[in-house]
């Protein structure tokens, strides 16, 4: 365990030194504040909680941005260290290879969690200060937690890529590909499929299942329909009735999207010649 913590601590310290944490936190805070205040302008009379509106817009931001940040942190984590030669020395120590992955994961999740909570927390704090209304903070906290979980799934995917390919260039390309696939292409393809199919074979249960096969969709459904107040506002209330996906199933999907790629990365790294 001390090995894992030492490696995690090193990652966090490096994240502070090379200003990764600062940059990510500022980026998320700036975007979150912009969305919060631009987005809340027209809702003064609607009666939806300010926070619920914010959750809706922030979770859309999260789906685009957090996977990208996570992949950028992770794609270089293993093949980059092999390239530079730092892994050679590290593995000559009494460190198991799965401990290396676990340590990096822990450190990177901490970085993501810090940046998300601080970045988004600022906008929530600003809202609370202005409107004095903090109803629905549980939903906000759930959104924060699930955002970190989404990030952690893409971290794990990033390690899987990083452990599998030979050089950093290929890993970077593949990471961008994964982002495009899960964040943009998957939904479009699903939409196209639904239009073409006209509900003949792709029934609601099948669609639900398909949504679980994409961590970004699992996150979207969790935040936009899972929370009643938010669902009302995002116009997803109708969908919620059909969607048989319980929040527990969605969270489980995200956890699996983290655990399986992590285990895969550890297994591939174990066989890899350094």
């Amino acid at each position: 365990m001390s090995n894992i913590l030492a490696i995690a601590g090193k990652e966090i310290r490096e994240g502070i030194r090379n200003r990764w944490i600062l940059a990510t936190t500022l980026l998320l805070a700036a975007l979150a504040l912009t969305l919060t205040f631009l987005g809340s302008a027209p809702t003064g009379t609607v009666g939806a909680s300010q926070l619920a509106v914010t959750i809706a817009s922030l979770s859309s931001l999260t789906i685009m941005l957090l996977p990208l940040i996570a992949l950028l942190l992770a794609y270089d984590a293993i093949c980059g260290e092999i390239d530079r030669g730092t892994l050679l020395l590290l593995l000559s120590y009494p460190v198991a290879r799965w401990q290396l992955i676990a340590g990096k994961y822990l450190g990177h999740v901490a970085i993501l969690a810090f940046a998300t909570c601080m970045g988004y927390g600022v906008s929530a704090g600003a809202l609370a200060a202005i409107h004095g209304d903090i109803s629905g903070w549980q939903s906000f906290a759930a959104m924060l937690a699930s955002s970190v979980l989404l990030g952690s799934a893409f971290l794990a995917l990033g390690y899987l890529v990083s452990a599998s390919v030979a050089d950093r260039g290929a890993a970077g390309g593949l990471a961008i590909g994964i982002w495009l696939l899960f964040v943009l292409i998957y939904d479009m393809a699903l939409l196209g499929l639904l239009v073409v199919d006209q509900g003949r074979t792709v029934t609601a249960p099948v669609l639900n299942l398909l949504l679980l096969f994409n961590p970004a969709d699992a996150y979207r459904v969790l935040n936009l329909t899972g929370l009643a107040d938010v669902a009302q506002f995002t116009g997803m209330a109708g969908v919620t009735q059909d969607a048989a996906l319980a929040p527990a199933a969605l969270v489980a999907a995200l956890v699996l999207w983290t655990a399986v790629p992590l285990a895969g990365a550890a297994m591939i790294l174990k066989r890899r010649q350094i």
Binding site: R13, E14, N18, G85, T86, S92
Partner: peptide, 18 residues
């Protein structure tokens, strides 16, 4: 047993940030 082994690789590299 690697607890008791020291290794200096050729062209040793460390993280520059620390």
């Amino acid at each position: 047993s690697r607890l008791e082994i020291g290794y200096l690789p050729e062209n040793v590299v460390f993280s520059n940030a620390l």
